[in-house]
């Protein structure tokens, strides 16, 4: 579940909060000031940060690959309409942002990131979001994904035996119904282990 790669660089040691803030700042700056030199400078800086973090080029490429076809279309459109500089700006800015975002992800353990998020969400308390509850919900989600995958595999097998494997409805309905029934047990199990939703966790 953790896409991060281990390391001891300053980037790895930096707590997640500042990294996220820096990313947001960079994103804002790039869009507020649409200048090619700035975009290229950020791109260069990002490359240097990747080297600092000791991340192999293979992984750098993997960050951008999902964007490849969108990028191609964008650059072609911009080239045709506004000339090569505009195309280059759009491409450089997008790649720089994706790489920076990927860098935060790669150099932070997801458990740290989740913990930071949980702390960062404390300001939501007046709106009714309790950080302790958010923490439990996050943990439960991570716990449920493999359980759901297992239920889906089971149901798919059962439906295949009935010749229904191509029907998405025949697959989804039993999975969701089982999941809802399970939720009663899970809630009971959490209560049985003395969980108190009204006492903010420590």
């Amino acid at each position: 579940m953790t896409p991060s790669i281990p390391g001891r660089s300053p980037l790895h040691r930096c707590p997640p909060g500042p990294k996220i803030l820096a990313l947001v700042a960079a994103g804002t700056a790039l869009f507020a000031l649409p200048r090619l030199d700035l975009a290229l400078a950020v791109l260069g800086l990002t490359g240097w940060l990747y080297r600092l973090a000791g991340i192999p080029a293979r992984l750098v490429l993997a960050q951008v690959r999902p964007l490849a076809w969108i990028l191609a279309v964008l650059v072609l459109v911009q080239l045709a309409l506004d000339g090569w500089q505009a195309g280059l700006l759009v491409a450089a800015r997008l790649v720089a942002l994706m790489l920076l975002a990927g860098l935060v992800t790669l150099t932070t353990r997801s458990s740290d990131l989740i913990e930071a998020l949980q702390r960062g969400l404390a300001w939501l308390r007046p709106l009714g979001a309790d950080p302790a509850k958010v923490g439990l919900a996050i943990a439960l989600t991570l716990r449920f994904i493999p359980v759901l995958a297992a239920i889906t595999a089971e149901v798919r097998e059962a439906q295949r035996a009935r010749g229904l494997e191509r029907s998405l409805v025949a697959l989804t309905v039993p999975v969701i119904v089982r999941m809802l029934k399970m939720s009663d047990d899970v809630a009971a199990a959490i209560d049985a282990r003395s969980y108190d939703p009204d006492r903010a966790g420590d």
Partner: peptide, 27 residues
């Protein structure tokens, strides 16, 4: 204490040690 029929419905947290500690933290 209560142990359920299906342990999948009773294990709350993703990692083994984490889950074990869940009830203790609640105490």
């Amino acid at each position: 204490g209560f142990v359920f029929q299906n342990p999948d419905n009773q294990i709350v947290l993703p990692l083994v040690a984490e889950d074990l500690a869940f009830g203790l933290k609640n105490l």
